[in-house]
Nucleic acid binder design. Structure first.
Length: 426
RNA sequence: GUGGCUGUAGCUCACCAGGUAGAGCACCGGAUUGUGGCUCCGGAGGUAGUGGGUUCGAGACCCAUCAGCCACCCCA
């Protein structure tokens, strides 16, 4: 047991797992690039007020989950609990919003919560934010893009899209009042958490897990009755676009997102394979936020995906990625090692697509070959006494059942060229 | 923040009215000395999460603490 451990809720991603992470991230970058989205990088620390204003003063995130601290000026700073606020701040600060923008970011977020499966205190999100398009076609594009990512990752089949609209701020306010009135009449029958939320965030009661509370909700006024006409049209058009694209979704009128800034479209991608933390990606529209941040009123829409949860999901589906070199070079003595090093160096220049690992630390051929096998390399390349004399090199297939061969340098280059082409076909 | 379960070698686990620890896998080495994967043999590795307490004696019992897991809560 080592003297130091990682801070609670903050985990090390070990070399075994990083290939899967890199695959996940690279796939995301590919999909985003294919849709014309550009990366934005913002600081991990912002003023506490920025998050409080955007996420909502009475949300759990702001009330008790932020890593906040005074800096040396006594200004209150916080580690970002999510990425939208920072992105909007940057977009306003640098005037990115004068024309439509499509941006994404990927990185760590921090929330002081009790850790459990799929929930950590430092976790990673891929966030996507778009500015300047008010219509539902922007929401549809985001959702289609998600689906492409899921498909490339091989997890599309185990994800469900839940969709709802929460209307305009005004519609929501009057609905909130109606719901609160109704629930107040049933106050004593509500579960404890919901009683508390009645004052703080009544809409959150809608997705309470309490059975009795849900029963009470069955007769509660519904959001749909209070929806403004524009939100309704927006929602209908979005559904139409999704239908057209063959993107199936579940309408969930009780889906309410936990952050205060949403309006109209809200959605979550969920899975039943991850236990209680079922949401893998969530987002929606937040048309008021840019204006609140002092920018010109600009519609906006986006989502955030939890990378740990996606990794977990892929692992439970036995989807994996491995990083193995193409060539593992072994050598018999100091002289051969030197030659091998130069050759490895040359190969990496001339065949940059190949992964070349040279054995370090000496040892018998036997132990070197063991290493070669464990590295997962496709081929072992041998520099021994014989090769030193002949000027050739020996190649042994470690995965395929092929006979070992000894090649001249010219033959070697032809071979490596073919190997490089083969590995690039993936 | 609340509740339940758990904490023994790198990993998965076992033993034991309480008498100072074992297995499998992994790791290292070897099986007539230039070749891995299979098999066989050998080896290294643990102050039993940490700190107290009960006891002649505790990994086993009690308390605290830390961490993990599961659920609530919350959300990605």
């Amino acid at each position: 047991m080592s003297q130091y451990r990682a801070i609670r809720g903050m985990v090390d991603v070990l070399p075994d797992e990083t290939p899967l992470w890199q695959m996940l991230e690279q796939t995301a970058r590919d999909v985003l690039a294919a849709h014309g989205y550009a990366e934005i990088r913002t600081p991990i620390v912002e003023s506490t007020e920025l998050f409080a204003r955007s996420i909502g003063e009475v949300t759990d995130i702001v009330e008790k989950e932020m890593y906040s601290f005074p800096d040396r000026n006594d200004d209150s700073l916080s580690l970002r609990p999510e990425g939208t606020a920072s992105t909007v701040r940057a977009a306003v600060q640098h005037n990115l919003i004068q024309s439509p923008q499509r941006v994404w970011y990927m990185g760590p977020m921090f929330r002081y919560e009790r850790p459990q499966k799929g929930r950590q205190r430092q976790f990673h999100q891929l966030g996507v934010e778009t500015f300047g398009v008010a219509g539902p076609e922007q929401d549809a594009e985001l959702l289609l893009m998600c689906r492409q990512w899921w498909t490339r990752l091989g997890i599309n089949d185990v994800l469900t899209l839940e969709l709802n609209t929460i209307g305009s701020p005004e519609a929501r306010a009057s609905y909130k009042a109606a719901l609160t009135d109704y629930l107040r009449d049933h106050f004593d029958s509500l579960d404890e958490d919901s009683q508390r939320r009645l004052d703080t965030n009544p809409l959150r009661i809608l997705d309470s897990k309490s059975v009795t509370t849900q029963a009470i909700l069955d007769d509660a006024p519904s959001m749909a009755e209070y929806l403004d006409e524009e939100s309704q049209r927006h929602h209908e058009r979005l559904c139409q676009l999704l239908d057209m694209a063959g993107l199936t979704y579940t309408s969930n009128p009780r889906l309410v997102r936990g952050l205060d800034y949403y309006n109209k479209t809200v959605f979550e991608w969920t899975t039943d394979k991850l236990g209680a933390q079922a949401t893998v990606c969530g987002g929606g529209r937040y048309d008021m936020m840019v204006g609140q941040f002092g920018g010109k009123a600009t519609p906006a829409s986006g989502f955030a995906a939890g990378l740990e949860r996606l990794v977990l999901l892929m692992q439970t589906l036995n989807l994996d990625a491995i990083a193995a070199p193409d060539l593992y070079i072994v050598s018999s003595d100091e002289n051969a090692f030197g030659q091998a090093m130069l050759e490895a160096d040359r190969i990496r220049v001339e065949f940059p697509g190949l992964g070349v690992v040279q054995h370090l630390g000496g040892g018998s051929f036997k132990s070197q070959f063991k290493r070669a096998d464990k590295s997962g390399a496709a081929w072992a390349m041998v520099f021994g006494a014989e090769e030193m004399v002949s000027g050739k090199v020996t190649l042994k297939a470690l995965r395929a059942n092929e006979e070992q061969m000894t090649l001249s340098r010219e033959e070697l280059d032809v071979f490596l060229g073919q190997l490089e082409q083969l590995t690039n076909e993936y």
